[in-house]
């Protein structure tokens, strides 16, 4: 139950991204996007204001196109559930450079804290394993951030992790909204200029 979740998302994401070492980040819409921006703006974050369910597919597409870059899909439990089948696609394609972290507060935080499917029943790591993603890690303490960073940024992928985060009241941290601007600066940072 999330009532017992201890990890504070903003500090946790900030500490984690501090260790990312060039990893490109595809945050899910809403809260994970605000967390990334709060940790310090970077052109290597593809901020998202929509497309619920597409964080993992986008990270997969990027991982296949850029095999020499590390890619992290950083999303929420609600967003992950909407695109849950994409874990099967990840397992099937098996990109060694792809990591997925679900910030699991067991609720739809962004829309008013309605209870989510991972609150009582669904275990996301077991689901990922069932799809064939062999390396998984469930984190419940802030202190595990170093170990989690090694797993997400260095271990042979695809890897999947959850962090049980608390429901918290964090101030809005809203990055740029213009999708063309977000995508273009991401591509420029990557050194890509053609389709």
């Amino acid at each position: 139950m999330s009532g017992s979740n201890k990890i504070q998302r903003r500090a946790f994401v900030s500490d984690l991204l501090g260790k990312r070492d060039g990893t490109l980040v595809i945050p899910g819409l809403g809260s994970p996007t605000w967390d990334c921006f709060a940790a310090g703006d970077s052109p290597e974050y593809l901020y998202s204001w929509g497309g619920m369910g597409l964080s993992v597919p986008t990270a997969l597409g990027l991982a296949l196109a850029q095999p020499n870059k590390r890619i992290l899909a950083l999303t929420g439990d609600g967003e992950m559930m909407m695109g849950i089948g994409s874990l099967g696609v990840v397992a099937d394609q098996a990109p060694g450079n792809l990591a997925i972290l679900v910030l699991d507060n067991e609720h739809f935080g962004e829309t008013g804290r309605q209870t989510g499917l991972s609150s009582n029943q669904a275990d996301l790591c077991k689901i990922a394993e069932g799809f064939g993603i062999k390396q998984t890690m469930a984190v419940t303490e802030h202190g595990a951030v170093g170990e989690l960073a090694d797993f997400l940024f260095k271990a042979p992928g695809p890897v999947f992790a959850t962090a049980k985060i608390a429901l918290s009241d964090d101030p809005w941290m809203l990055p740029v909204k213009d999708g063309v601007a977000i995508a273009q600066r991401f591509r420029t940072a990557l050194g890509v200029d053609e389709t």
């Binding site: 497309g51 993992v56 597919p57 986008t58 597409g61 196109a65 994409s86 696609v89 394609q93 053609e194």
Partner: peptide
């Protein structure tokens, strides 16, 4: 590369990610 999907809307993420990566 053939990417078999679980549902078609995943492809909108995959093609976007692929394009972001220059492919």
């Amino acid at each position: 590369r053939l990417v078999t999907l679980s549902t078609e809307e995943e492809s909108m993420g995959i093609v976007t990610g692929h394009w972001l990566g220059g492919k």
